[in-house]
Amino acid sequence: MTTGRVAIVDLGLGNLHSVAKAFERAGAKAELSADPDVLQRADRLVMPGQGAFKECAHALAGEVGEAVRAWIDTGRPYLGICLGMQALFEESEEAPGEKGLGIFPGSVKRFGTNLRDAEGRKLKVPHIGWNQIESRHPVFENEEWYYFVHSYYCVPDDESLVVATTDYGGPFCSAIARDNVLACQFHPEKSQHAGARLIGHFLGDVAWN
């Protein structure tokens, strides 16, 4: 597998240690950076979850956001994780008035306050822990378990973006894919073997884009 250089967008809002290590374990050379030149030179770009939507939107309002947008336009592979998925959309209920990257039309919504499972038991928000996905996309395995930590989820205007859903009081969008852009609400870096497989697929061991 030729993985090339992976740049991990570091907005300075959280610890990206485990994301970097997960890529290194998969055999990639991973570099944490917010420098547009460094991002520009990479073969693959990863935007991990960091901070809350507001801080993330502020951090992306300047040249880093421009660099990410320009990068996605080049057609090279992009992986968004958690907030790095949510940031692709226009806005979030977490921070009304703040602008996401707006790569895709749509918004980010909060889980309802009276969320219940199929047996009527009240579900807790945030959704924290291991849950399954339903997917037919080549980078995911149907019914695979991944680790989630979030209170908000993406609602794309274009439903055909959705390539995986997860059940938490009903199905929500847990991954999207379009051309060179792949993004998931869960954390592959914390999802043990399943996460490692996804990272391997993103790095090129299956054709997905």
Binding site: H17, S18, K21, A22, R25, Y147, E189, K190, S191, Q192, H193, G195, A196
Partner: peptide
């Protein structure tokens, strides 16, 4: 913690 987080991919 650093050594564990580097090698263990669960929370």
């Amino acid at each position: 913690v650093d050594r564990t987080a580097s090698t263990v991919a669960v929370p």
